[in-house]
Simulated assay, not measured.
Amino acid sequence: MNSSLVIGLSAVVVAIKDGEAAALTVRHKAASGNLTGLPFGPFDPDGHRTFELALRAFVTEQTRFDLGYVEQLYTFGDKGRDAPLADLGDGDAAARVISIGYLALAPAAVDTHFAGSTWRPWSQIFPWEDWRIGRPPALAPIETALRAWSGGDAQRLARARLLFALDDAPWNEERVIERYELLYEAGLVQEAARDRGETAPSRSDQLIAAVGEAMISDHRRILATALGRLRGKLKYRPVVFELMPDAFTLSALQRTVEAIAGVPLHKQNFRRALERAELVEGLGHLDAETGGRPAELFRFRREILGARPVSGLSLPLLRE
Rank of each mutant, 00 (worst) to 15 (best):
G37K: 01
R203H: 12
Y69P: 13
D168P: 08
S99M: 07
A200F: 14
L313T: 11
L234V: 10
A165C: 05
G101M: 03
L105Q: 05
P245F: 03
R272V: 00
G152Q: 13
A209Y: 08
G89Q: 05
L265F: 10
S32D: 15
E178L: 09
L250I: 12
E296Q: 14
M215K: 03
L166R: 00
R229G: 02
S311W: 08
V14H: 06
G152C: 09
K79C: 08
E191Y: 04
P141F: 04
N34P: 06
T60M: 14
E258I: 13
A192F: 04
V110C: 09
I260E: 01
I133N: 15
I216C: 08
W149G: 02
E213S: 09
W171H: 04
L317M: 11
G91C: 07
G187T: 04
S123T: 09
W149Y: 05
K79Q: 14
A109E: 02
V70D: 12
E20G: 13
F114H: 15
L5M: 08
G284H: 03
L243M: 15
L103F: 00
R64G: 15
F164C: 00
R272S: 00
I133D: 14
R175T: 02
H48E: 06
F164Y: 02
Q268E: 05
L183R: 06
G47P: 11
G151A: 02
G212K: 03
A31K: 07
S4C: 04
P316W: 05
I304L: 15
A21R: 11
D153M: 03
G284C: 08
A140L: 05
D246E: 15
F65T: 15
G77S: 01
R64C: 15
R276N: 10
